[in-house]
Design a protein around this nucleic acid. Structure first.
Lengths: 147, 147
DNA sequence: CTAGTTTACTTGACTAATCAAGTGATTGTG
DNA sequence: CACAATCACTTGATTAGTCAAGTAAACTAG
């Protein structure tokens, strides 16, 4: 019926795994009162602060509108401050966010790693990273799929 | 600064790729007037119809509430019909959905495959599938992360 | 036969995203 | 100098999902 190709099988697996691990990550981060999306944004800000909204949007691969809303939420929870500077808004972390990240970041890195370390050898991890990186980079070139 | 582990690097790549390819898939399916999520649900119904809502929710890994809303949308667009049977609602595809899928399904399978076929050898595809399957299965066991 | 439990589904409040249209400074250019 | 274009950001409408509380049918006692 559905003569699945190898590629479509990989795709399904990948999507289901991404979904699943995202949910588990949300569950995990609940103890820090964060969602995966919020953590991702805060971690990027920490690395690149001070940063403008549009730059940040690019880093986390979200539209301008998306980042605007996300930052509005994060500001309401006083994780970040936005300073109007010229026409640009410059974003940086508050003490609160800094403190939360200090705990959450290493924990989350461990958590993420555990998905792979528990079942793959060092060699296999490297192999997987190599393959997924190649696939990812290729997909970025793909921007405009042929009609 | 961020002493990233191999695992956390893989995770980031995987998530960004899942995100990216999901967006591209949405763009691709626009010609059929479908989103990736809708396509996924319709394809599952096609395989398993007639099926109940709760069974379907499990297949596509979404909550009861989520599937309820999704099916309400699909019904409004008359892609599916829901027949109350006892206390259960049995779902099946309409002619319209059947016709759309006939075109969309092979196209989408091709599209998904192209992410991998273009950059990996047959051998590497098998390797990637093996690794991601192991990782995915492991994540399903993981259901309740340790406190 | 009525009361309580379970099952299947819905719904309200929320997070997170998209697109497209709108706002409001800053920067050309005639 | 004024008008248009551009840039950075916001916002309304919509899709897609979550959780938790609610409804209604169908079983399961006492």
């Amino acid at each position: 019926m559905r003569n699945n190709t190898m590629g479509s099988l990989i795709w399904l697996r990948l999507m289901r795994f991404a979904n699943q691990s995202n949910q588990l990550s949300n569950e995990f981060l609940k103890r820090f009162d964060l969602t995966t999306a919020q953590f991702d944004v805060l971690a990027q800000i920490q690395v690149y602060q001070p940063i403008t909204q549009s730059e940040l949007a690019e880093k986390v691969v979200v539209t301008q509108g998306g980042i605007s809303r996300m930052l509005a939420r994060l500001e309401k929870e006083s994780y970040i401050v936005r300073k109007q500077e010229w026409k640009t808004k410059t974003i940086s972390l508050t003490e609160k966010a800094q403190a939360v990240l200090e705990e959450a970041l290493p924990a989350q890195l461990m958590f993420q790693s555990s998905f792979f370390e528990d079942v793959l050898t060092k060699e296999e991890e490297k192999q997987l990273y190599k393959l997924i990186t190649r696939v990812h980079k290729h997909s970025q070139q793909k921007k405009f799929p042929p009609e």
